[in-house]
Amino acid sequence: MEHIELFFKSIFIDNMIFATFLGMCSYLAVSKKVATAVGLGAAVIFVLAITVPLNWLLDQYLLQPGALAWLDAGYADYDLSFLSFIMFIATIATMVQLVEIVVEKFSPSLYNSLGIFLPLIAVNCAILGGSLFMQSREIPTLGLAFNYGVSSGIGWFLAILAIAAIREKIRYSNVPPALRGLGITFIITGLMAIGFMSFGGMLTGGDESTDAEPKTVEVQDSTKDKTEKELANNTKIIE
């Protein structure tokens, strides 16, 4: 099921923080306490869930080469994709402003705890990155675009929750003075990213295509001596 595959792929394998480092600035700034991290993560999921499908619609019916054919057959060779950046960022800024108004009205406590970070989501690389990756990976349907938005947001949320929890715990650890705060956070995030790389093997096995079958590798021996050559002869490519 491509929905389930996209869902898990966007959370673990293409994680916005650990694989592509989108949204690092607010990730580093807000992760000192778990409570604010949860608030910001939820806001990011919400904004991504709204903006990615919206930008997909814009891309499909306005920006792609040949997209304007629905308006009039004569417009079919227009390619407005160079306007993508400005159109995407315009929808994002508008949606964030809307979200801010709605949150202020319905949950003043959340609005106060998020403070300056809610308007800053508009310039969070993760939001624009979500839309740009949606465009460059040519996600085919609106449903998948919504799926991608929500799951990328969940991946980001997972990352910021984890680092906030770790930072709270290491407050009492004996970190060298020059590494305290920012330095150790970078190194921990790097180690977490290495950990998340282990998910890379997920979703690549099975009966999808012949390319995905495992191969054993033949050892190349050019100038080694005889005994190694004999050993090497025992291995060969199995397909």
Binding site: L179, R180, G183, G190
Partner: peptide
């Protein structure tokens, strides 16, 4: 060449910079 190493290299740069300039150390 993989992305996590960029984070660790950056952490080391910060370490070097803050060791040389003690004013930048945060608590």
């Amino acid at each position: 060449l993989l992305s996590p190493m960029a984070l660790i290299v950056l952490g080391i740069i910060i370490w070097v910079q803050r060791s040389r300039n003690k004013d930048l150390i945060e608590d």
